[in-house]
Design a protein around this nucleic acid. Structure first.
Lengths: 210, 210
DNA sequence: ACCTGAACACCGTTCAAGT
DNA sequence: ACCTGAACACCGTTCAAGT
């Protein structure tokens, strides 16, 4: 509903983020965004190659608050902190988890790559060999995205008035539930370190003979 | 490309599954499905309330092979078996993981609920209190869906000719990579059982005074 | 029991041309 | 540097009416 014409890229992303938060991912369309900016749909393609790129930029904006966190503290605490920070960022916007999951698949969010790197660093400090550190870090991300997307869809479903007055065990106490799963993963990492973790996964191809 | 007219629901789902496998989720549209059946788009709404319901039915068809597995064996082995079976089913169809993830969110797949139940039973056998068994089971599902969606998108990206000849560490050895993450979770469950698992998560609401 | 016809209200993307 | 106009090729869904 703006009526002036020219916009910078950041302005466009900000409006998109606002639309997402107000109306949800399904209503974040190129045409609607254009209309809300007082502009023709084609104009958006001067700023972004396609919708994926726009969504990636919105994801980065949502994840921005997670971008500075302390790098001291033991590795397990760091993983819990990064995971919790990610979840909070996702919950801060309508359909945030769904949006970021989509951009994770398409690799268009730079911020999410940053988060992965910090998780890899933590797994590294846990003593994992690089291959396994990467695997452990991705496992954390799969969990956080899955849990939070689930949580958020229930929240919205629920705010829309469903669920009988007995609140399901699945919507109460989300923080504790979230932490439980995260701890499952960090405990698993610790257990693995206590035994055979430094082996890495089997290299599926033969190594050259010496 | 069928030219005859009337179809039963199963026939429609079968054609949808075939379309999915052949052209991917993005090309599985109601209109295209109708065209391929030699029918008008509106006809599909006699069989399904909406597209979600159709997708749920397709998901169930994909997950059908995972529906009978042995219920003996220790809990950790059962979890690994269920998780691996789920992954295999997802990989058996183009965009299978993406489809099932979407229907998981919308709760329209009955088969996925069945898989969850069997994971809950395994977690139960591991000695978890019901609340935590449910949490652990869902964590497994988040992981399997996340990992496999990621794996599958790389596979397709890659079959389409990208990735320089140095095959990324992320596409080689997927079985071992998958099992690594799964073991991280079962190890975590075992570690938790060895300590404080029977407490359940903190009940976020006050219990009535006795 | 299953389908048609026709409409309604939309999509993402491209691109010559304008300022 | 940023936008318009206009088109192209689509979507999901509804519903009276037909067989």
């Amino acid at each position: 509903m703006d009526t002036h014409r020219r916009h910078g890229r950041d302005e466009v992303v900000a409006k998109a983020a606002h639309l997402l938060d107000e109306y949800g991912l399904a209503d974040l369309t190129m045409r609607r965004l254009a209309r809300e900016l007082g502009v023709t749909p084609g104009a958006l393609y001067w700023h972004f190659a396609d919708k994926q790129e726009l969504l990636g930029a919105v994801a980065d904006r949502i994840l921005e608050p997670t971008c500075r966190e302390p790098a001291d503290a033991p590795w397990a605490a760091r993983i819990v902190a990064i995971g919790s920070g990610l979840r909070e960022a996702l919950l801060s916007s309508t359909d945030g988890a769904e949006l970021v999951s989509a951009t994770f698949a398409s690799g268009t969010s730079q911020a999410l790559r940053g988060i992965l790197e910090r998780l890899v660093a933590a797994a590294d400090d846990a003593g994992f060999v690089p291959t396994n550190a990467e695997l452990a870090a991705r496992t954390i991300v799969y969990y956080v995205l899955g849990f939070t997307a689930d949580e958020q869809s229930r929240l919205q479903w629920d705010a829309a008035g469903a669920l009988p007055h007995e609140q399901s065990v699945l919507t109460s106490n989300p923080n504790a539930r979230f932490t439980f799963g995260l701890r499952l993963l960090t405990d698993g990492m610790a257990a693995r370190q206590a035994s055979d973790a430094d082996d890495g996964v089997d290299p599926g191809v033969a190594v050259p003979a010496p």
